[in-house]
């Protein structure tokens, strides 16, 4: 059951301030009810469709610096004069 408290919990998990929580309560509830159709699935298999690779198929351990016309990547990001990324305070 999706109520105000649950939608607030979910919005906290995804870190999105909801402007109109009521609208989402209704829609999320409706869709989740539809998802409950999965309860009827009765299929027993450990198989997955994921690709499997042998260890030799993985990337070799080599250092190759990222090059973008000789410019470091940090120049393309939000940074301060000392090349740090500034994040909000963590109190």
């Amino acid at each position: 059951m999706i109520d105000r408290k649950e939608i607030e919990h979910l919005s906290d998990l995804i870190k999105v301030e909801l402007k109109d929580p009521e609208k989402y309560i209704k829609q999320v509830e409706q869709i989740l009810n539809y998802f409950d159709r999965l309860d009827a699935v009765d299929f027993d298999s450990e198989e997955t469709l994921r690709k499997e690779v042998k260890i030799d198929g993985l990337r070799d351990d080599k250092y190759v610096p990222f090059q973008d016309n000789g410019k470091p990547l940090i120049d393309k990001l939000k940074k301060d004069p000392n090349n740090y990324i500034r994040a909000p305070k963590m109190v």
């Binding site: 995804i14 989740l32 998802f35």
Partner: peptide, 20 residues
Amino acid sequence: SKVRSNFGPEVTRRMLLGAF
């Protein structure tokens, strides 16, 4: 949370569903 409220309604809906 404030900047991420700029996601549109469909994206927000799916993220809520996904979190659930």
